[in-house]
Simulated assay, not measured.
Amino acid sequence: MTSGQGGPYGGQYPGPEGQGGQPQGWNAPPPPQQSYPGYGPAPSAPVGHGAPQAMERPSTVRFGIGAFVASLIIGAISSVVAFGNVDQIVAQTMATTDDPAVTEEVIRTGIVIGAVIALIIYALFALFLWFAWQGRNWARVVLWVLGGISVVFGLVGLAAPAPGQSGFQTSLGWFSFLLTLAGIVLLALKPSNDWYRFRGWQRATGQG
């Protein structure tokens, strides 16, 4: 019987036999990869020196940004209510001032300018909230600064209500104050710090 007859290639090897009885140029197929039913491949660990542990967005970030969003909505509602009481605000302001330069036109103009500025601030605040939700640490710092300013002015406003401010607006102010304070604290907790650090590492390494 000649060499190669009856083999897996119908009697024809790709080349002459090599050492060990295997044909030259023939590589054994790799062993099948062992798998277990019901289990997927293990996730790869972060590589590189100083790689943080992978983590999902923690509840402190979700609730903290949610508190800021709720405060923003309450502030917008309060502004709409105040803008709807322009006549009452003008009348009470005129009754409490003796300055001849303060006229109804001046007061109404100031209210309109204040409303436009408030809309711009709300839009910027919403933009910063979006970036903070995506894990941008600089946006979190901006929220801390703006939130701190809002807390200070909120305390002043609650201590000395503006002319024409109703009890409903005062209640909204208290809710907005507490929600802003909660957002600042929640975004400063350790799980939030760890997640923002992880997101920064992801962007630095091109993974997020």
Rank of each mutant, 00 (worst) to 15 (best):
F68N: 01
I120N: 04
D98P: 00
V80G: 14
E56V: 08
P37F: 12
G114H: 04
A95L: 07
A28N: 05
P100T: 07
I73N: 06
Q22D: 05
T93H: 02
S35K: 08
V116M: 13
D99P: 05
V112K: 09
F125S: 04
V90T: 09
A28L: 11
P52L: 02
P31E: 15
I73R: 08
V112N: 09
V47R: 13
Q24C: 08
L124I: 12
V61Y: 02
A45R: 11
V69M: 11
P41S: 14
G75W: 01
Y36R: 12
A76I: 14
G18M: 04
A123S: 11
Q24E: 14
I113N: 08
I77G: 03
P52W: 00
A42M: 13
A67K: 01
G66L: 04
T96Y: 06
M94L: 15
T96K: 11
A115V: 09
V81H: 05
E105P: 01
G18E: 03
A118N: 14
I89A: 11
G20S: 09
I89G: 01
P41D: 14
H49L: 12
V80F: 12
A95H: 06
A45L: 13
P41Y: 10
Q19I: 06
I73D: 07
T97N: 15
A28G: 04
V61D: 02
T96P: 00
F125I: 01
P46H: 04
A70C: 09
G25Q: 01
V81D: 13
I73G: 09
M94R: 11
V102P: 03
L72Y: 00
I74W: 01
I89N: 00
A115K: 04
I73P: 00
P32F: 04
A82S: 15
V106D: 06
S79E: 13
T109F: 12
I113G: 05
H49D: 14
V81G: 01
A51E: 02
S44D: 11
A76W: 05
